[in-house]
Amino acid sequence: MYALYDRFTLTGQHHIRTWDRQGHSWAAFTNYRQPAAHGLYIPQPVLNLIIRGEKRIYDGLQVHHLRTGDVFLIPAGSVICSEILRPAEDFASINFFLPEMLQAAQHTGAGTGRQVAGTTLTISPSADWRQLTQALLQHFREDGAMPAYENMMDRLQHLLQKEPVAVRRAVAGKPSGGMQHMMARLHNGIHEVRLLEEVASLGNMSPATLKRRFRETYQCSPMQWIWGKRLQMSALLLRTSEQPIPEIAYSTGFEDLSHFYRQFRRCFGMTPARWRRAEI
């Protein structure tokens, strides 16, 4: 149901250019000329700079509507849906994978509060962020031009250190090793699991340990989290496909239509049919 996002290439992209270091991509400029939709598991933090166009990010109870100039942070351990909206000309963005060294630096500056994983955040697009975006665009437009990796990470670290504590905690936060192992196995089968014991077995832990670690990482129970991810996928499919509503409900893991309708309305404040038609 959700694909692993460990590289920048996704279906529907019209063009992509990446910057690579030691065989791994660390930044990319991408654009789309048609609408596109993706369900993604994000194992390491991603910083998203919106260059042109609009997109929606579905993150549990939140739907973020991003526009030109926005800066968006997706922490490690996030499971999201992304919808590129009807681009009049095209949609373009620059994305970074944030490395361990930068996460550790933000952890140092984030105080003693809990480091929250999986909580997406919109960062206010200050003049500093706009200057960075323009400089990066110039590099991407010039063949062969690539800033020094260490210099760019220093610049990102400097900008993030100036952000509120909540942003720095989100950069630093990540699931524990056991939770990461479980998520690597769970993300593409969220629609299939039925019992807490099934989820716990994916992480080789007891149900009690799983519940404790889920509460520490995502501030909710495992099954609450799973139902939320099923609902956000159904919300995406309602907007981006012509599938009948019952088919969407069953395909995302709901076995009882009345339960699906109740939960969807509780989550999004309207019926699935109205959500499909609404301009939000």
Rank of each mutant, 00 (worst) to 15 (best):
I50C: 07
A27S: 05
L10A: 08
R56T: 15
Y32S: 00
S25H: 07
T30I: 03
V63P: 09
L66F: 07
H65F: 15
Y41P: 01
E54N: 10
W26D: 10
D20Q: 11
A27W: 00
N31M: 03
I51V: 15
A36V: 06
Q13M: 13
L49C: 04
P45L: 02
I42N: 00
G69R: 07
R56Q: 13
I42D: 01
H15W: 10
I42E: 02
A36Y: 03
G69V: 13
G12H: 04
L40M: 06
Y58M: 07
F29Y: 12
Q34E: 14
G60A: 13
P43M: 02
T68Q: 15
T9L: 06
P35L: 07
H38R: 01
G53L: 02
T30E: 04
A28D: 06
Q62I: 15
Q44S: 15
T9K: 01
T9V: 13
D59M: 07
R17E: 09
R7F: 09
T68C: 13
G39P: 00
L61T: 15
F8C: 03
A36N: 05
L10Y: 06
Q13N: 05
N31K: 03
R67S: 15
H65Q: 13
A36M: 05
N48M: 11
G12C: 06
L66V: 11
G69T: 08
T68E: 14
I16G: 09
V46G: 01
Q13K: 04
R33G: 08
L47N: 03
E54K: 05
R67C: 15
Y41N: 00
I50S: 06
D6A: 03
R56M: 13
G39W: 02
R67G: 12
Q34M: 06
R52E: 12
L40D: 05
P43F: 02
T68G: 13
K55T: 14
R17V: 10
N31F: 04
K55M: 14
A37T: 13
G12P: 08
T18V: 11
A36S: 11
G23R: 06
R33S: 07
G23T: 09
I50T: 14
R21A: 14
W26E: 08
I57P: 08
P43H: 03
N48V: 15
N31S: 05
L47W: 02
Y58C: 10
L66E: 08
R33H: 08
T18P: 03
G23P: 11
F8Y: 07
W19P: 01
G12R: 00
L10Q: 09
L40Q: 02
R52L: 09
H14M: 11
R7K: 09
T30H: 00
R7M: 10
H65C: 13
V63F: 06
T9E: 13
N48W: 11
A28R: 00
Q13R: 05
T11R: 08
T11F: 12
Q62D: 14
V46M: 01
V63C: 10
S25W: 02
T9H: 07
S25E: 11
D59N: 15
I57L: 12
H14S: 14
F29I: 12
A27R: 01
L66N: 07
W26M: 07
K55R: 14
I42A: 01
L40P: 03
Q22P: 09
P35G: 04
L47G: 04
Y41F: 06
T18R: 02
Q34R: 09
G60H: 12
T11I: 09
T18E: 11
D59H: 10
R7G: 14
R17K: 10
R7H: 10
D20Y: 00
G53N: 02
Y32R: 01
